[in-house]
């Protein structure tokens, strides 16, 4: 008891004691696996026996058409989700935050937009697969039928599959992003808008000159997690195509490829190399983005 008390009251030791759970978790679940991944990526593992093969895995990776295809698919998905999932929720959040419309209707809207985030991707993927079925009776094909068009083989063509994936992402994440932006908007002091109104600024001007600049930290945050989320997407595609195989690998993502090589084809070394490359790519993009957006600058220098 005495020892513990001394420890807790000690100015030097106590802080370390308090952060210990976090540090231990970080070491156990991040640094150790990360180091193991780097090690594995230089090995060939067969039935639990590992042999060192240097950078062979990376060399194969570099020459692998499918890896680049997966990388392209993931990057394309990431860029398009950001292009859709930042502006649209932003405008919707501004509409909810404005004084127009009934509060009750807006509350219902807000809640209903958030519900998809609570449903499981597994269920959503199955439903979307049925909606985008290639037969004429699928929901999307009935919709295009209204316009007099022939049924589309959605999940068998590249663009069709991409549209389905983006629709799933939109459906699922619009509500969450609205909440982020709404929280950011509600933290902007009312006085700014009052002052702007007195100076004669219109609603649109206020949005671009007050709301947007003040929302910058939120936008930076949402963009950062979207970069990660987009590049690391796996489950959506896995569920939509009912498994990891899609026509011409049009739905193959980097994580999907990692899963295929590591878990399905028993090449854990190669899969680890894929993981390491993905980590490097995501970190590079995000660190560059965060530096350019000024997140790392000291508060006073901003």
């Amino acid at each position: 008891m005495a020892v513990l008390r001394r420890l807790l009251y000690s100015q030097k030791a106590a802080p370390y004691l308090f952060i210990a759970p976090f540090v231990i978790t970080l070491l156990a679940f991040w640094l150790v696996p990360l180091a193991r991944t780097f090690m594995l990526s230089t090995q060939e593992v067969v039935f639990g026996q590992a042999a060192f093969i240097g950078l062979d895995n990376y060399q194969r990776l570099w020459e692998d058409r499918l890896f680049w295809k997966a990388m392209f698919n993931s990057a394309r998905y990431m860029v398009l989700t950001i292009a859709l999932l930042i502006p649209i929720p932003l405008v919707l959040a501004a509409a909810i935050n404005s004084k127009i419309g009934s509060e009750r209707v807006k509350a219902v809207f807000k809640a209903s937009m958030f519900v998809p985030a609570l449903t499981s991707v597994v269920v959503a993927g199955v439903i979307f697969r049925l909606m985008f079925a290639e037969s004429g009776t699928g929901l999307m094909n009935q919709i295009v039928g209204v316009f007099g068009l022939d049924p589309v083989r959605w999940l068998r063509i590249d663009t069709g599959g991409l549209i389905a994936l983006l629709a799933l992402a939109m459906w699922r994440w619009t509500g969450v992003n609205i909440l982020y932006f709404l929280a950011g908007m509600q933290a902007i002091p009312e006085e700014y808008y009052e002052a702007a109104t007195i100076d004669g600024a219109g609603k649109v001007q206020q949005f671009f000159h007050i709301t947007l600049p003040n929302l910058k930290p939120t936008i930076v945050y949402v963009t950062t997690i979207s970069i990660y989320g987009g590049l690391a997407m796996f489950l959506e595609s896995f569920m939509l195509y009912r498994g990891n195989a899609s026509p011409n690998d049009q739905g193959l993502t980097v994580i999907g490829y990692l899963y295929r090589r590591g878990i399905e084809q028993n090449d854990l070394g190669f899969a680890s190399a894929v993981g390491v490359v993905l980590l490097v790519v995501i970190m590079t993009i995000n660190l560059t983005f965060l530096t350019l957006s000024g997140t790392f600058k000291k508060e006073s220098a901003r």
Partner: peptide, 17 residues
């Protein structure tokens, strides 16, 4: 934010491994 990304990534990697 970066730290959060890192821990997210870590979780992903850890889960895989």
């Amino acid at each position: 934010t970066t730290r959060r990304i890192i821990s997210l990534l870590a979780a992903g990697l850890a889960a895989t491994l």
